[in-house]
């Protein structure tokens, strides 16, 4: 099939963005299992991009390789499953961001390599360029290396498949600009920034269809224990950044403007 892809999206789960986070000894997040979780937002963007790409290229398939405690994965899948079609590969592993990225990458790469009938020549490895938990930007690259893929892109906002099969990639670089690269097709790694797609609507039928694969995938989710890889924590704390705030009331706009302009010039 010309230009069909096997897209593997890697993702972790992170706390829903408005939650109050507090570290406890370990370190770990206080009440980690209690906090509502969501699919990592950058990885979620990459999942939507993957689905759009697969839809545009018949014969393509999207896998979601997700690692978190099984119960949390199950909850989050009830939302994610309604968004786009995918096949879940579930890893029953830790949730938090304080784990080692390279160990995470090793677990993911192993799971990807074990996907039956995965055509590596068509493999596009997707994920967020960083996560909202560890935020290291290490996992996807390392997983790519472990899978032997040396065409890698980070901070991707756009991926276009040209008529000649070349992939045009826009990566975020310094100065609010994009680096434009051309890659001669799969296999390649794409760490996505936000991309350009809106979050898909919840589709109950999509959910039902995905669920047929999700439930068995969760049932056979492999337990994963991550190696610390020599990493230890000296401290983890929420910084006290309270400033002495000066409240300015009843000052005419003109005077405020003068004060602001003077401050800008300082």
């Amino acid at each position: 099939m010309p230009n069909s892809f096997q897209i593997v999206v890697c993702s972790s789960l992170v706390p829903d963005p408005l939650q109050t986070l507090e570290p406890v000894a370990g370190p770990a997040l206080k009440n980690e299992m209690m906090l509502p979780a969501v699919l990592d937002p950058w990885a979620a963007c990459s999942l939507y991009e993957a689905a759009a790409l697969a839809a545009a290229h018949p014969g393509s398939k999207v896998y979601l390789v997700a690692m978190a405690p099984k119960a949390k994965l199950q909850q989050v899948m009830m939302t994610v499953a309604q968004k786009v079609p995918f096949e879940l590969v579930a890893l029953d592993g830790p949730l938090g961001g304080f784990t080692d990225a390279q160990s995470t990458a090793a677990a993911l790469a192993e799971a990807i390599a074990a996907i039956p009938a995965l055509d590596r020549s068509k493999l596009l490895l997707f994920g967020g360029w960083e996560s909202a938990s560890r935020g290291a930007g290490v996992t996807l690259q390392t997983a790519g290396e472990l899978l032997g893929i040396t065409e890698q892109f980070q901070g991707v906002d756009q991926l276009t498949v040209r008529d000649d099969g070349q992939l045009e990639v826009l990566e975020r670089v310094e100065g609010g600009r994009h680096q434009v690269s051309l890659c001669q097709g799969a296999p390649a790694v794409f760490g996505w920034a936000t991309g350009n797609l809106a979050e898909p609507r919840n589709s109950p039928q999509m959910g039902m269809a995905n669920m047929r694969g999700i439930t068995p995938a969760l049932m056979k989710a492999k337990p994963v224990k991550l190696d610390a890889n020599g990493l230890s924590y000296v401290s983890a704390a929420v910084p006290k950044q309270t400033r002495e705030t000066r409240l300015v009331r009843d000052m005419p706009a003109e005077e405020i403007a003068r004060e602001i302009v003077a401050w800008m010039a300082e």
Binding site: P23, G230, L231, Y233, V234, S235, A236, A237
Partner: peptide, 8 residues
């Protein structure tokens, strides 16, 4: 949100 100090 959380600042940590790490060693390897």
């Amino acid at each position: 949100r959380i600042e940590a100090v790490v060693k390897r």
